[in-house]
């Protein structure tokens, strides 16, 4: 309606043309990058869904049959899973504590303001953090099996080492952010290096650290369910046993227990974190 009342001005027309042209160009370049991404997707789809998949064997029917096997859910086995579930939670707890324990020296190295040997130790500390986070827990578990054999210890070590990266990164960043006030105060009354660390830094970073450990604990519960691969106990071990026996109903039952444990864990970590803050 207003367009009609606008005076036809060639200057305005020219401005609009310029804008329209510019918008077309932007749209085209956007479309072009979208097309590239789409081509890549189609390429991977071709490689994965068409070339790599054996459609002769994989049919709707076969999928339906395999899904149906999971339906043989065995509720009577659930009470027997309580004990393994407790084991799983305890494994996650131990792994988180151990992770915290191992993370402390790494954080000390990797915090810019307290790192002992300057740049060298800082870079080393940061490198350890990256290494810990970059290697998947499955790989860590396999590495530890070679050292301590199959069993719960390898699983706990793997989870602990995998947790170190995140915990130490958070601690290091918290240490880098500490307020100088209390440290100055302790230094002013002649405190030693250890006293500075213990009374000046620890209280300030403690809530962050505990929050992070709880966060990792939550994740470690999830992780511990696959540590059955290396014979670590708990629900993970039961799961892998059922898998070895191709007992799909049993697998589904264990997974239900895992889910229940994770939900419980979510509640526990939620309230634990609230208690700290």
């Amino acid at each position: 309606m207003t367009a009609a009342t606008l005076e036809p001005s060639s200057a305005l027309d020219r401005r609009i043309d310029a804008i329209a042209r510019e918008r077309r160009t932007t749209r085209r370049s956007r479309l072009a990058s979208l097309a590239v991404a789409l081509a890549l997707v189609l390429g991977t789809v071709y490689a994965i869904v068409i070339k790599d998949t054996d459609w002769a064997r994989l049919t709707w029917q076969s999928v339906a049959t395999s899904l149906a096997r999971f339906a043989e859910f065995d509720t009577s086995a659930l009470p027997g899973l309580v004990d393994p579930a407790i084991d799983t939670a305890l494994m996650a707890t131990l792994a988180s504590f151990l992770g915290l324990f191992l993370a402390l020296p790494v954080a000390w190295l990797g915090a810019r303001n307290i790192t002992p040997l300057g740049r060298a130790s800082y870079v080393f500390g940061r490198g350890l953090m990256t290494l810990s986070r970059s290697v998947h827990e499955i790989v860590w578990a396999l590495i530890f099996v070679s050292a301590v054999g199959l069993g719960v210890l390898a699983g706990i070590l793997a989870m602990a080492v995998r947790s170190v990266g995140f915990i130490s990164k958070v601690i290091a960043e918290a240490i880098e952010d500490v307020q100088p006030g209390p440290i100055e105060a302790i230094r002013a009354v002649g405190g030693t290096k250890f006293q500075i660390l213990w009374y000046g830094i620890v209280p300030q970073v403690l809530p962050v650290v505990l929050g992070t450990v709880i966060f990792e604990w939550d994740i470690n519960i999830r992780r511990s369910t696959i540590m059955g691969l290396v014979g670590a106990g708990g629900l993970g071990l039961v799961l892998f046993r059922e898998m070895a026996r191709s007992n799909y109903g049993g697998i589904a039952t264990v997974l239900a227990a895992v889910l229940a444990l994770i939900i419980v864990g979510e509640f526990v970590s939620h309230y634990a974190r609230k208690a700290i803050i």
Binding site: L12, R15, R23
Partner: peptide, 15 residues
């Protein structure tokens, strides 16, 4: 979605 506004809308906006 594609910011394709009508010509008269652009004219009005500029005005």
């Amino acid at each position: 979605l594609f910011r394709m506004f009508r010509r008269e809308d652009i004219a009005q906006a500029l005005t």
